[in-house]
């Protein structure tokens, strides 16, 4: 069975759990005590990923780190429809990839602010918040124009893609880092759409579209 080296409160780990759940793929969760134990810095986990980063996915002989890479692999391997990682149109494939890169920026900003405020990590929370607001403004504008063209998702097309899964967690958890989404209405509508994708699951800090339903 697939094994996911996982930490419950990690948005990057949640990305992998979210796509696996939506696709109905069974997997085993291996808890790595990132906080408060800092076990990701210890030899046992460094043997799995020398970079000391979560998540890591193991499937047969494959061992894969980096949450965006895991999304790409899981979509290509377990989504026969191909719509979660669409490759037919070069234009769409490029845009999906662009938003996967954008998600790395969210990790460097919104996630860093959350780790600083919530778990006492020694990051510059103010700089991280400023960076996150710049990204949120870009994303909000993009989603607003998408909506004007009848598009619900980050990349063009009728269905959500790995781009939406990659960007969702640290947008949705941003308030834990002191980043309000009050002034980003198109982002708020988009997060609500993500929560209504069939098979959607929550993590601590993220509630279902209907409270008490999960």
């Amino acid at each position: 069975m697939i094994r996911l080296y996982d930490f419950d409160l990690s948005g990057n780990c949640y990305k992998a759990r979210l796509l696996l759940a939506i696709l109905g793929v069974e997997y085993e969760r291996r808890n790595v005590d990132f906080f408060p134990g800092l076990k990701h810095r210890e030899p046992e986990f460094l043997a799995v990923n020398p970079l000391g980063q979560l998540p890591v996915l193991e499937d047969g002989d494959l061992r894969l780190a980096q949450s965006q890479a895991i999304l790409v692999y899981v979509a290509r391997k377990y989504d026969p429809s191909g719509r979660w990682y669409p490759l037919d149109s070069p234009e769409i494939a490029g845009q999906v990839q662009q938003w996967l890169g954008f998600a790395e920026g969210l990790t460097a900003t919104a996630s860093a602010a959350r780790l600083a405020d919530g778990m006492g990590f020694d990051f510059d929370a103010e700089a991280a918040r400023d960076g996150a607001h710049k990204l949120f403004a870009v994303m909000d504008e993009h989603l607003w124009f998408q909506e004007r063209q009848g598009q619900d998702w980050l990349a063009p097309g009728a269905a959500p893609t790995v781009a939406d899964i990659a960007c969702f967690p640290y947008v949705m958890l941003s308030e834990e880092g002191g980043i309000s989404r009050e002034t980003y209405p198109a982002i708020r509508r988009w997060t609500d759409r993500v929560k209504r994708i069939p098979g959607f699951v929550v993590m601590p800090g993220i509630f279902p579209a209907v409270l008490g339903s999960q």
């Binding site: 408060p36 134990g37 308030e175 834990e176």
Partner: peptide, 21 residues
């Protein structure tokens, strides 16, 4: 220990957005 901690953090993590709002 890490599972017991995991359980508590899971619950506290659910409270956090409610508290901060």
């Amino acid at each position: 220990d890490d599972f017991i901690s995991y359980f508590q953090l899971h619950i506290f993590g659910q409270d956090k957005p409610i508290l901060e709002n």
